[in-house]
Design a binder for these strands. Structure first.
Length: 413
DNA sequence: GTCCGTCTTCGTCACTATCG
DNA sequence: CGATAGTGACGAAGACGGAC
C-alpha cells in the first residue's frame, strides 16, 4: 500500500493517499473524519461535473446521519471524507461499512470500525484492484486498521484540472444533510450543485419494493443525470458500440421485417441485413420486357402467418402499385408501394423512407435494449451490494450485541 | 485439435406503459 | 390514439472450459 500522507485540511483531520487510476492518472484519496463518512445515499456525480465516472458512495450506517461530511477532489482526483464533530453521527464503538460500486463492475465494501470513546480520523489509501487499508486513528494514539476489499475505488475523478467538492453543510439537527458538490474549473469558477439526500434507507427500501421496473427504480438517477445534478439515489440504484445498418445504395423494401433489394432490372431479391430470412423464403418478379404488359410476382412465404397480397398482372400503362403485406403479430402493416413504369425510381423514395424508418426503429430499440440491460445489471449489482452491506451491518450488530452481552455479564458479576 | 455443453452478449420481436 | 420507451422472451453467435 502507499504511504499515508497526513495533511491538515479545513477541519484538521485530513490525510490522504495516492494511487494511479485505471487511466494511469494519479488519484489522491483522502478520508478524514472525527466520525465516519456517513453518506446515506448514493451520491451521483453527473457529467456536468466533468467526472469520468459516476461517483457512487454509500454508507450502510445508521439512519442517524450527521451532517458535515466532505468528499473533496483536488484536481478532480482527491477524495476527502470529513465529518464534522457534533450532530447525530456514527456512534462510537460501532462498525460501519461503505459500499462503493465500481465503474467497471464490482463493489467495494469499506468497513470501518470506530473505537469507543475516541475521536476518529480515518485515513485511507485506496488503491484500485489492490488490497487497501483505511486507518482510523482514535485520539492521538489509537490506530484502527481496516482493510478494503480488492478493487475498491471511490470514484471522484475530474478531467483537465477540474475539481469537485462535495460538501455537507450542517443543518437542522442532522435531519437533513445539505451536501453540495462544488465544481471548480480551471478559471476558478465554482459551480455548486446540491446533493439531495432522501431521509432514510428504509424509505428507499420501501420504494424499491414498490417499484416494478428498472426504469422507475433508476428514475431518480436519470433525472439527475439530465440535470447534471448530484443527488441522492435510492440505495438500490444503480455502454457500447452500434452496428449501423449498411446501405449499398440499392433501394430496399421492407416487408415484414425483411429487406427486399430493389434492382433496376425489375428483379427483386430478398435479402436481409444479416443475410438470413425469416418467414419469407422467396420473392421473384419478372418483367416480360420493357414493352411487356405484365409482370408476374411470385411470393412464397413460410412460417408465421405471412399472408400477402400482390397483383399478379399489371398494365404497363398503369401506375402499378404493389402492396405486399405481412400482417405481423402486432398488426402493423408494413406496406410497400412501388411503381414499375420502366423503372422503380418513384417507389424507391417510399421504399427508402420505409426502410429508413424501420432502421431507425431498430436502432432505437437496439439502444433501448442495451440501456435496459445495463440498468438491469446495475440493478442486480446494487442488490448484491445491498446484500453485502447488510451482511456487514448484520455482522457488526452481532458483534455489538456480543460485546454488550459481555459487558452486561461483567457488570452482573 | 476437435467436439460439446454452458454461458454471455446482442439483436430483434412482441407487448405494455406512458406521454402528448 | 399514435408515437415512443422500456422490458421480457427468443434465437443466433461467439467465448470458454472440459472431455476425448
Amino acid at each position: 500500500m502507499d504511504s499515508l500522507d497526513d495533511e491538515s485540511g479545513g477541519d484538521g483531520h485530513d490525510s490522504e493517499g495516492e494511487y494511479e487510476d485505471a487511466h494511469g492518472l494519479p488519484v489522491r484519496t483522502h478520508i478524514a473524519s472525527p466520525q465516519l463518512p456517513v453518506l446515506m445515499s448514493w451520491v451521483h456525480v453527473g457529467a456536468e461535473q466533468q467526472l469520468a465516472h459516476k461517483t457512487l458512495v454509500r454508507s450502510a450506517a445508521s439512519p442517524n446521519v450527521s451532517a458535515g461530511q466532505v468528499i473533496r477532489t483536488t484536481n478532480g482526483q482527491t477524495v476527502v471524507f470529513t465529518s464534522m464533530a457534533g450532530g447525530h453521527g456514527l456512534k462510537q464503538g460501532t462498525t460501519q461499512a461503505i459500499a462503493v460500486p465500481q465503474a467497471g463492475g464490482g463493489v467495494s465494501i469499506v468497513q470501518l470500525q470506530i473505537p469507543a470513546n475516541q475521536t476518529n480520523v480515518v485515513q485511507s489509501v485506496i488503491q484500485p484492484n489492490q488490497q487497501s487499508v483505511i486507518q482510523a486513528t482514535g485520539g492521538a494514539q489509537t490506530v484502527q486498521t481496516v482493510q478494503l476489499p480488492k478493487g475498491n475505488v471511490i470514484l471522484l475523478k475530474g478531467q483537465g484540472g477540474q475539481g469537485s467538492v462535495i460538501h455537507s453543510a450542517d443543518t437542522d439537527g442532522g435531519v437533513h444533510h445539505g451536501l453540495q458538490i462544488i465544481s471548480k474549473s480551471d478559471d476558478g469558477e465554482e459551480t455548486i450543485t446540491p446533493v439531495i439526500f432522501e431521509d432514510e434507507s428504509r424509505k428507499r427500501r420501501e420504494i424499491l419494493a414498490r417499484r416494478p421496473s428498472y426504469r422507475k427504480i433508476l428514475n431518480d438517477l436519470s433525472s439527475t443525470e439530465a440535470a447534471g445534478a448530484v443527488t441522492a439515489i435510492p440505495a438500490e440504484i444503480k455502454h457500447e458500440e452500434d452496428r449501423e445498418g449498411g446501405g449499398d445504395g440499392t433501394a430496399t423494401i421492407q416487408v415484414g421485417g425483411q429487406y427486399l433489394k430493389v434492382l433496376p432490372a425489375s428483379a427483386i431479391q430478398l435479402g436481409s441485413q444479416d443475410g438470413t430470412l425469416q418467414g419469407i423464403q422467396t420473392l421473384t418478379m419478372t418483367n416480360a420486357g420493357a414493352g411487356a404488359t405484365g409482370a408476374i410476382v411470385q411470393y412464397a412465404t413460410q412460417g408465421q402467418d405471412g399472408q400477402f397480397y400482390v397483383p399478379v398482372t399489371v398494365s404497363a400503362a398503369d401506375l402499378q402499385a404493389y402492396q405486399i403485406r405481412t400482417p405481423s403479430q402486432t398488426g402493423i402493416t408494413q406496406g410497400v408501394v412501388m411503381t414499375s413504369t420502366g423503372g422503380l425510381q418513384g417507389g424507391q423514395v417510399v421504399v427508402e423512407e420505409a426502410s429508413k424508418k424501420r432502421e431507425l426503429r431498430l436502432l432505437k430499440n437496439r439502444e433501448a435494449a442495451k440501456e435496459c440491460r445495463r440498468k438491469k445489471k446495475e440493478y442486480i449489482k446494487c442488490l448484491e451490494n445491498r446484500v453485502a452491506v447488510l451482511e456487514n451491518q448484520n455482522k457488526a450488530l452481532i458483534e455489538e450485541l456480543k460485546s454488550l452481552k459481555e459487558l452486561y455479564c461483567q457488570k452482573a458479576d
